[in-house]
Simulated scan of single mutants.
Amino acid sequence: MGFQLPNFNHPDFTLPQFVESPQAKLVPSPKDKVAPEQYHATTIFPEYFKIGGQWLLAKESRMDCVAVYENGEIVIRESRRLKQGDLVVIGRTEDASEGIYVHTAGFASEDSNPLETFAFRQGRSRETAYSRDYDSLYELLRHEREHGYITWVLGPACAFDHDSRTAFSKLVQNGYVSALLAGNALATHDLEAAYLKTALGQDIYTQKSQPNGHYNHIDTINRVRLHGSIPAFIEKEQVKDGIIYSCVKKQVPFVLVGSIRDDGPLPEVYSDVYAGQDAMRQCVKKSTTVICMATTLHSIATGNMTPSFRVLPDGTVRPIYYYCVDISEFSVNKLKDRGSLGVKTIVTNVQDFVVNISKGLGLE
């Protein structure tokens, strides 16, 4: 039967709790970048606000932001973007008693059953069986390639191995990557592999350290900076393979955001974290599936920007599928602890994961 999106069930606004609910209270922002006292902080779930007798859905949400009533709509805005006088929703309940309703069960299926009182292996760990997750992912990715927007968030481990680097390049080339979010290291080591056949000085296939290999990644950065940009480096140095090469050739957008420890960095890397966050957000706003691999900080950053739903141009509300893949149970659990409650976690080696995904999609 293939992949099918679940139906979204809007709240029944004819129920007394909604009919008798007061209007949401709006208070002007006292100054730029400052929310009024008792502001409502948004969640990952669909949220409705009663304004003028109507329940308005905030169409683009984000965790830990504020709701602003503007031009007849609810706009979700980071506090740093507030302007003095913006009409901000205040209230700290979520059950419609203050004109604010957080809808956590919009995609709940009618046949879902509560867990047994006692059952083994209900968590997600290295002992979890992931066969069904892989099968579901193959179906999801095939659907999203035609109907969605797939954002991948990568750590440098994805470029350290010959096979995983090749496998991810095939995903890009075959339309399974709509955008790539990463740091300086992923791009640096991927370009190092294309330029010098090493990652951090080790041969990407044999893993043998090369003479003076510790220079290779900074030599690569230096060469890219000489040419002025990653696309210019790819052209001038006749680079023919890799993750970033494939993104450039397929015109897949990539956003590289730096950190305090970066070498170089590469010319395209955002050194201003808020400019980088804004650039990441532009991709996240389009995303219908997000897959994070082997990068705790970028996974949490992206998770904090990503709601559990997307409102399509035709008004349809659909879920956003969010996966986090890491060999560390700590990393995937930390993402959930930071509020990304809808994330599906897979605890495995990301290099094996990418190869399995590529093979499962028939990209051998």
Rank of each mutant, 00 (worst) to 15 (best):
D219V: 00
S109F: 08
Y195K: 09
V257K: 15
L82P: 11
V224A: 05
K344Q: 06
G91N: 06
F254D: 04
Q210Y: 11
P211N: 10
R165G: 10
E60G: 01
E78F: 03
R318A: 03
C247K: 12
S164R: 02
G91Q: 08
V172M: 09
I327H: 14
T14W: 02
A129K: 14
V347G: 01
S287V: 03
V19D: 01
M63A: 07
H162F: 10
K286M: 05
C247T: 06
P11K: 04
G342W: 01
S21K: 07
K25S: 08
I346G: 02
D262N: 11
N304G: 09
V252G: 08
L57M: 10
Q238D: 13
Q351W: 05
I357P: 04
I244V: 15
M63Y: 14
V239N: 01
T302R: 10
Y215E: 06
A167P: 02
F254N: 04
R165M: 00
Y195N: 11
K336P: 02
A105Y: 11
S299N: 05
L26F: 10
T289K: 13
K359P: 01
E78V: 02
H162P: 01
S169G: 13
P28W: 10
H189L: 03
N216A: 10
A105W: 13
T188R: 13
I218H: 14
N356M: 02
H40R: 07
F254S: 03
E237A: 13
I204M: 01
L363P: 11
T296Q: 15
